[in-house]
């Protein structure tokens, strides 16, 4: 369904290291302009997959096309068109922010204006600061800028927020969201459910080297578990039958003054309508829905 507009096509990718299969039969396609997530626990094969796609590793078998090119054979040309932020990749401690940008800009024939990048990414104040003196969040900002300075069409971001405090992580998410507006295609590797759920248009869930599912975050959640749970408190007695009679409801449980209703579809509306009609006041009402965590458990049969 993505044919004609996909910028990355991976088919039947296999990669094994000495004693361990890192990636087995991975296939996916990434459409132009989307933020595509590769989600999975540590050691699932995410980084190996991305490194093969970016031309840093040679796959054992399978085909990869990035912007119509073979990442190994056309590495030179491809590297002018992609930007990569690798996991656990540093810079020289004493290199200043502007020097890094100036240097990396010099690698490309038509680089971005790095002075403007500094302004856009809120790093102008830190232009003369040495890399080693930057905070974790500022380093990530610099890495994103370095990945963008060649004006790439595809950007790979591998575990961008690992090791960041929650504040810096949220700031980095805002930066990635800003990337979406520039129209660049982003491949985001992460093991954070929340990150994938918030940023990605679609994502591939990888576990133990294999793709378990590819879908939108919402689609994955719905596929795993479309049940909802409504929890509320009633002051007087409640006749359960008025709730069990609702078609959307599959289960009603009372725990003291608390009532838990489980069901599907437009459950909240159906339940509150019936309660109102029967003049029952529901206090402390909460709706619990499955999230990506639940989806992952349902898809792989194990906790993240």
């Amino acid at each position: 369904m993505l044919r004609g507009m996909s910028v990355i096509e991976v088919a039947n990718l296999h990669k094994r290291y000495r004693d361990k299969i890192a990636v087995r039969d991975v296939s996916f396609a990434v459409a132009e302009g989307e933020i595509f997530g590769i989600l999975g626990p540590n050691g699932a094969g995410k980084t190996t997959t991305v490194e093969c796609v970016a031309g840093l590793r040679v796959p054992d078998s399978g085909t990869i096309r990035v912007l119509g090119m073979d990442p190994r054979r056309d590495a030179r040309k491809l590297h002018t068109l992609i930007g990569v932020q690798l996991q656990e990749s540093q810079l020289q401690e004493r290199m200043k922010v502007w020097e890094a940008l100036h240097l990396y800009a010099s690698f490309y024939a038509t680089p971005a204006d790095w002075e403007r990048l500094l302004d856009e990414w809120g790093m102008a104040r830190h232009r003369d600061v040495a890399y080693g003196k930057l905070s974790g969040g500022q380093k990530q900002r610099l890495f994103i800028m370095l990945a963008l300075v060649g004006r790439p069409r595809v950007v790979f971001l591998d575990e961008l927020t690992t090791g960041l405090d929650p504040q810096a992580r949220r700031e980095t998410w805002e930066l990635v969201e800003r990337l979406r507006q520039t129209g660049v295609t982003v491949v985001l590797v992460t093991h954070f459910m929340e990150e994938a759920e918030r940023l990605c248009d679609r994502l591939a869930v990888i576990d133990d080297g294999s793709v378990v599912a590819i879908d939108t975050p919402g689609g994955l959640v719905a596929r795993a578990d479309d049940r909802q749970r409504i929890r509320f408190r009633v002051t007087g007695p409640l006749d359960e039958r008025m709730l069990t009679a609702i078609p959307e409801v599959s289960e009603v449980a009372q725990q003291g003054s608390h009532v838990v209703v489980t069901g599907r579809g437009d459950l909240l509306y159906a339940v509150t309508a019936v309660l109102a009609r029967n003049h029952v006041v529901a206090a402390d009402l909460r709706v619990e829905q499955a999230n990506l965590d639940d989806a992952f458990v349902a898809l792989t049969g194990k906790r993240f």
Binding site: A54, G55, L56, R76, H79, T80, I82, G83, V84, L86, E88, S89, Q90, L91, Q92, Y104, F107, Y108, L146, G150
Partner: peptide, 10 residues
């Protein structure tokens, strides 16, 4: 990873 980062550029 400085060499690796550079190997993703031209």
């Amino acid at each position: 990873g400085i060499l690796r980062r550079m190997s993703t550029t031209p």
